[in-house]
């Protein structure tokens, strides 16, 4: 299970970082969403991976699972949810007002050369 969790956090972060560094606003927003998923899983794992244990100290149970990361994750989810909504609205307003969804202030309707995105540099 450790490998599965670690790999999924790693993949989510990787996808998030890649998308955040893109030139257009929509992939960037999806990237921040991926990053927040990654960090939520990460916070869960920081309470140690525990199965089938109550989140309370119960003398009858063989152990317990740490309840605090779950509270932290809940707060983080609420905040990142609100943030994602805000940034979507911002990006939409920006697109409607300027006709461009580029984050680097480049021309709005630049024809995309094949492979231009892979080069990554500012146009």
């Amino acid at each position: 299970m450790e490998i599965l969790i670690a790999a999924s956090i790693g993949f989510l972060t990787m996808a998030g970082v890649y998308l955040v560094l893109r030139r257009h606003s929509y992939p960037m927003i999806v990237g921040t969403a991926f990053l927040s998923y990654a960090v939520n899983l990460f916070l869960f794992a920081m309470g140690r991976l525990t199965l089938d244990r109550p989140p309370l100290v119960d003398p009858a149970a063989p152990g317990y699972t740490d309840p605090l990361p779950q509270a932290l994750v809940l707060t983080a989810i609420v905040i990142s949810f609100g943030m994602t909504a805000l940034i979507v609205v911002l990006a939409l307003r920006g697109f409607l007002e300027t006709g461009s969804d580029r984050l680097d202030g480049g021309p709005p309707h630049e024809p995309e050369a094949p492979g231009a995105d892979r080069a990554g540099g500012p146009a």
Partner: peptide
């Protein structure tokens, strides 16, 4: 709006 979008994005990554 443009500056705001970038500011929000930077701070979202910072929060993460």
């Amino acid at each position: 709006l443009n500056a705001g979008l970038r500011y929000v994005a930077v701070n979202l990554v910072g929060s993460t």
